Simulated assay, not measured.
Amino acid sequence: MNLLKAIGKQMKYPRGLLGKLVLLVMTRSTIKAGRWTVNLLDIQPDDDIIEIGFGNGANIQLLSQQAPGGSVTGIEVSDTAMEMASRKNAKNISEGKVKLHKTSGNALPFKDGSFDKACTVATAYVFEDPGEVFKEMHRVLKPAGSAAVTFPFRENFMKFKPVEAERFHLHKLADLEKAFRDAGFVNCRTENNDRVKFGAHCMLGEKPASN
């Protein structure tokens, strides 16, 4: 159980050598869900995009490829993730196309209406209060901007022993959908994908074009 608890803690907040290993394994489990999310967002070449909880930076690469004339901003709380993502995206960072910030998703250091698209993948069960993160995603989006929140099927994820050991915040789908709508998103819908690890939901919504 001690090992399971250690792995669970690393999944929530990767640190050090074990954290790097866990991030690599997590990326293998979530990269397909990341690609699916990128496709659902219908990213345009000049979009400015923000990703909350970028892990080792693999999804940052995907986003950059889809928006070669735009920019990608990443948010993380883990120093280990920052280090790995910085190496993986070094070229785009040096060219100013990617910027990585160590900060919390519920207190984004950006002005209102800064981004065209916002996403977060495999993070919803880490957030104690996901509604606060959704409100920040909504705030920093431009009018008519789009958001995507992707996370595993709860019933499948609950069976993963390290999750059980570390007690993630296993929010119900209906509660997450309500929090997403309450954050201000409109035209909301949830897509499902049972072909990725654990299965995945993706909540999609838009910021109203005008207040």
Results as ranks from 00 to 15, higher is better:
S114I: 08
M84H: 04
F134K: 02
I93V: 12
T80I: 06
L62G: 02
G57M: 05
E76D: 12
N59Q: 10
I75Q: 03
D112H: 14
D116E: 05
S104K: 13
Q65M: 09
A124S: 06
A107E: 14
K102A: 00
A85G: 08
E95N: 03
N59C: 02
D129V: 04
G74P: 14
T120L: 11
M82Q: 08
K91F: 10
V72P: 04
N89T: 08
H101F: 15
C119M: 15
E136G: 04
S104V: 14
F127L: 12
K88Y: 10
G131V: 06
P109M: 10
A122W: 15
A107L: 13
L108M: 08
C119S: 03
S86T: 11
S86V: 02
K99Q: 08
G74I: 08
K88D: 00
M84E: 02
V72G: 00
G113D: 11
V126G: 04
A124E: 11
C119Q: 11
N89S: 04
A58D: 10
G74V: 08
G70C: 09
K102M: 05
K135E: 07
Q65K: 07
H101T: 07
G70M: 11
G105Y: 12
R87M: 02
K111L: 07
K117I: 03
A107N: 11
S78G: 06
Y125I: 01
G57H: 08
R87P: 00
F110S: 00
A118C: 03
K135D: 02
G113W: 15
F134Q: 01
L108Y: 05
K111R: 10
K91G: 00
A118P: 09
V77A: 03
I60Q: 07
A58Q: 09
D79S: 09
A122G: 05
A122N: 04
F110A: 00
V126D: 09
K99T: 05
S71A: 07
F110K: 06
F127C: 01
Q66K: 03
G69N: 13
Q66C: 01
K111V: 09
S71N: 09
I60K: 13
M82F: 15
P68K: 11
T103M: 07
G69A: 10
A118E: 13
E136N: 14
L62P: 03
E95S: 03
K102P: 00
R87W: 04
F127Y: 14
S78L: 14
E128G: 01
A58E: 11
F110M: 04
A118I: 06
R87N: 00
K111Y: 13
F115H: 04
L62N: 05
Y125W: 13
N92T: 04
V133Q: 02
G96C: 08
K91S: 01
Q65G: 06
Q61K: 13
L63N: 02
A81L: 15
L100N: 10
E83R: 10
D112Q: 10
E132S: 11
V77I: 14
L63Y: 08
A81F: 15
Q65D: 14
V126K: 12
G113T: 13
K99R: 12
A107T: 15
K99G: 01
A124Q: 12
E95G: 00
K91L: 09
P130T: 07
R87C: 02
E76R: 10
S104G: 09
A122F: 15
V77R: 12
N106H: 15
H101A: 01
N89V: 09
E83N: 02
L63M: 03
N92C: 05
Q66G: 00
D112K: 15
L62K: 07
K88I: 07
